[in-house]
Lab assay of single mutants.
Amino acid sequence: LHIEINVNGLRIELHNVSEELAERIREILEKVDDREEARRLAEELIK
């Protein structure tokens, strides 16, 4: 499954994740104000 999410102008592509996991990642990242911090957090979440 390939999912693309957009959060605060940051486009993140997720591969091989469930829709539920992608939604949780999006919800978490929406709470982060700083774009660079959101990017770093996204990288950690999808490892």
Rank of each mutant, 00 (worst) to 15 (best):
R24P: 00
L21M: 13
R40S: 07
A42V: 15
N6R: 05
R26Y: 08
V32K: 02
H2M: 13
H15Q: 09
L45S: 02
A42D: 00
V17H: 03
R24G: 04
E23A: 15
R39W: 15
I5D: 01
L1F: 09
E13P: 07
N6M: 10
I12N: 00
E43H: 10
I46P: 00
I25W: 05
R39P: 01
I25P: 00
E43S: 06
E13A: 07
N8K: 05
I5Q: 01
R35L: 15
L10V: 15
V7I: 14
R39S: 07
R26T: 05
I25T: 00
H2F: 06
E19G: 09
E37Y: 10
I12W: 12
R26W: 07
E30P: 00
E13Q: 12
R11P: 05
E44P: 01
A42N: 00
E44F: 11
L14Y: 06
K47V: 12
E23V: 12
R26I: 10
I46K: 02
S18W: 04
L10F: 11
S18N: 08
R24Y: 11
R26G: 02
V7C: 04
R39E: 04
N16W: 07
H15T: 09
R26V: 07
K47Y: 11
I46A: 14
H15P: 03
L21I: 13
L45R: 01
L1M: 14
H2G: 07
E4F: 09
L41V: 07
I12D: 00
A42H: 01
E44L: 10
E20C: 03
A22G: 04
S18A: 06
E43G: 05
E30S: 13
A38D: 00
A42Y: 09
L29I: 07
I46D: 02
I5R: 00
R40N: 09
A38G: 04
L1H: 13
I46S: 05
N8V: 03
E13T: 14
L14G: 02
V17T: 06
R24T: 07
E44T: 07
N6L: 13
E20W: 13
L1I: 14
L41N: 02
A42G: 03
L14R: 00
R40L: 09
S18E: 04
D33P: 13
I28A: 11
E20A: 13
V17P: 05
D33N: 14
E4L: 14
E36Y: 08
L1W: 07
I5T: 01
L14I: 07
E13I: 14
I3H: 09
R40G: 03
L45D: 00
V32N: 09
E43I: 13
E27Q: 12
E13Y: 14
I12V: 10
E37L: 12
V32H: 10
L10G: 03
R11S: 13
E4C: 10
N6Y: 05
N8F: 01
A42Q: 01
I46E: 02
I12H: 01
N6C: 08
E36P: 03
K47T: 13
A22W: 11
L1A: 12
L14Q: 00
I25C: 01
E44V: 08
E13V: 15
N16S: 06
I3Q: 05
V17Y: 07
R35C: 05
R39Q: 09
S18K: 05
R26C: 01
I5M: 07
L10S: 06
E30I: 12
E19I: 15
R11K: 14
R39V: 13
V7P: 01
E4G: 03
R40C: 04
H2P: 07
E37D: 07
E30R: 12
E44R: 05
E30Q: 13
V7Y: 05
I5W: 01
E20S: 10
D33M: 15
A42I: 15
L41F: 05
E37H: 08
E43K: 05
A38R: 04
K31G: 14
N16M: 07
I28P: 00
R40V: 06
L21E: 07
I28Q: 05
L14F: 09
D33K: 15
I25E: 00
R26A: 05
R11H: 15
I46V: 12
I46G: 02
E19S: 13
R11W: 12
L29M: 10
L10Y: 12
H15M: 08
H2L: 11
I3G: 03
K31W: 07
E43D: 12
V7T: 05
I3R: 03
R24C: 04
E37Q: 11
I3C: 02
E19F: 14
L1C: 05
D34C: 02
E36K: 07
K47W: 11
G9Y: 01
K31T: 15
G9E: 03
L14S: 01
R24D: 02
E27H: 11
N16A: 07
H15E: 06
E23I: 13
N6A: 06
A22R: 04
E27D: 13
N16E: 05
R26K: 13
I5C: 03
E19V: 14
R24V: 08
I28Y: 05
E27R: 13
I5L: 10
H2I: 15
I28D: 01
L45P: 00
I25G: 00
V32G: 06
E27N: 12
E19K: 15
V32S: 07
I5E: 01
R26H: 04
R24K: 13
S18C: 02
K31Y: 10
K47I: 14
E23M: 14
L10W: 12
L41M: 12
R39L: 15
E4R: 03
N16Q: 06
E4Y: 06
R11N: 11
V32E: 06
L41W: 07
N8W: 01
E30W: 12
V7F: 10
E43R: 07
R26F: 06
K47E: 11
D33Q: 15
E36M: 08
I28F: 06
N8C: 10
I28T: 06
L45Q: 03
E19T: 12
I3D: 02
N8Y: 01
G9H: 02
D34A: 04
E23K: 13
R35K: 14
H2K: 09
N6I: 14
I3L: 10
L45G: 00
D33L: 15
R24M: 12
A38S: 03
R26M: 09
A22D: 00
L1R: 06
R11D: 04
V32Y: 12
I46F: 06
H2Y: 05
I5V: 07
E19L: 15
L41D: 01
E37K: 08
R39G: 04
L45H: 03
E30G: 09
L14E: 00
E20H: 12
I25Q: 00
D34F: 04
R35D: 08
L10T: 13
A38E: 00
L29V: 06
E44I: 11
I25D: 00
D33V: 14
